[in-house]
């Protein structure tokens, strides 16, 4: 089922514009992530698709060929996983999963068959008769997902499905969720503020900020060629390298960096993982902080640019704070963006 959104916008009665006119298409079976900081309008867009929020006049939401803009949420046949999971506390796991089928008056035999099928898909067979209040966070999340997909919805919507879990569990469940979503093969839209979730799960990511969709594309595209400073900073935490641009080189406080001739007048960004310690490197700075994060060190380096520049250092040993270090950045790893104030359409 293709999901098409045309000019969807939402203005609250007090004049707050939660969502500026936004258009996007999600192909059949595709998993799209709406990514952005809180208050960027991503949840509003999701609720407009669900029918829980009424969009401004002129907005249009289509499921396949059907215009559902004015269709009540009960009749839209969407599956939704809520941030808090919103499981019915007075029902067992089975009753929760079968609820959507029960209210649609599906015959008992078929209901049981379908619930068993979804229980197996979500690996919940052992918990079928337990009260949902007795489940762990990860199990609740699977029940919420199972309940949403049991009635075979046209579109699956997930609102921050992993944010209620603690950090350790979140990482393992992220891959599990990605695998289950592929298995269901339903067009899915999921909202998150966590870039690693979006990168791991989504086929395409739509980055949003301040009610505006900034860029939409495959995870690799957004990472390698962000369209704006916001996207560059938000995905992969790119850091600006403010300096004087001369033909073929960028003059920084801590040295001169070679850049491609074609770079022209642009803002230059770089990510921490692309900055390498190198005794023959063209840039020089003073090490300010060193923190060990398991696989690598995170180095905070002063005097290369005005702000502290961060580099990831994969070695077994790191220099000590206060040491002078030399740095190398490959021109291929630099991200060039049109100078701020000249945002492309």
């Amino acid at each position: 089922m293709t999901l098409t959104i045309t000019n969807a916008s939402k203005t609250y009665p007090d004049g707050t514009r939660a969502l500026r006119p936004t258009s996007l298409t999600v192909g059949p079976g595709e998993i799209l992530s709406l990514l952005g900081p809180s208050g960027c309008g991503k949840t509003t867009l999701l609720r407009i698709i669900a029918g829980l929020e009424r969009p401004d006049p002129g907005s249009e939401v289509r499921f396949g060929d059907e215009d559902v803009t004015r269709l009540a949420v009960e009749r839209r046949n969407v599956g939704m996983v809520f941030q808090s999971y919103a499981l019915f506390p007075n029902m067992s796991v089975c009753a929760n999963i079968g609820y959507g089928l029960k209210v649609r008056k599906v015959p008992a035999a078929e209901l049981t068959r379908r619930v068993d099928e979804v229980l197996a898909l979500c690996r919940l067979e052992d918990h079928a008769e337990r009260p949902v209040t007795a489940l762990s966070g990860g199990q609740r999340q699977r029940v919420a997902l199972a309940r949403a997909v049991a009635p075979r919805p046209r579109i699956l919507l997930l609102d921050e499905p992993l944010s209620a879990l603690d950090a350790a569990l979140r990482d393992s469940l992220r891959d599990e969720l990605a695998a289950m979503l592929r298995q269901f093969d339903i067009t899915a839209v999921f909202v998150t503020h966590d870039q690693s979730e979006a990168l791991a799960i989504a086929d395409r990511i739509a980055v949003m900020s301040d009610g505006v969709m900034q860029q939409i594309g495959k995870p690799e595209e957004l990472y390698r060629s962000p369209a704006s400073a916001f996207v560059a900073r938000f995905i992969g935490n790119a850091m600006p390298l403010p300096g004087r641009m001369e033909p073929g080189r960028l003059v920084l406080k801590g040295g001169v960096l070679p850049v491609p001739e074609a770079a022209g007048r642009s803002d230059v960004y770089v990510r921490a993982e692309d900055i390498h310690l190198d005794e023959d490197g063209p840039l020089q700075g003073t090490l300010e902080t060193v923190s060990f994060s398991g696989g690598h060190y995170r180095l905070g380096i002063r005097d290369v640019v005005e702000d502290t520049l961060f580099a990831t250092h994969p070695g077994r040993q790191a220099p000590a704070p206060g040491d002078r270090v030399r740095l190398r950045i490959s021109p291929d790893d630099l991200v060039f963006l049109p100078q701020s104030g000249h945002m492309p359409e």
């Binding site: 669900a50 829980l52 009960e74 919103a86 019915f88 209210v103 309940r147």
Partner: peptide, 27 residues
């Protein structure tokens, strides 16, 4: 009462009357 419980019931296709019986009164 958690409003998302009612929203969940609505997305699953429950009528207002069913929401009262299945979600609101038990809550």
């Amino acid at each position: 009462l958690d409003p998302s419980l009612e929203e969940a019931a609505r997305t699953l296709g429950a009528s207002p009357w069913r929401i009262v019986v299945d979600v609101i009164l038990p809550g």
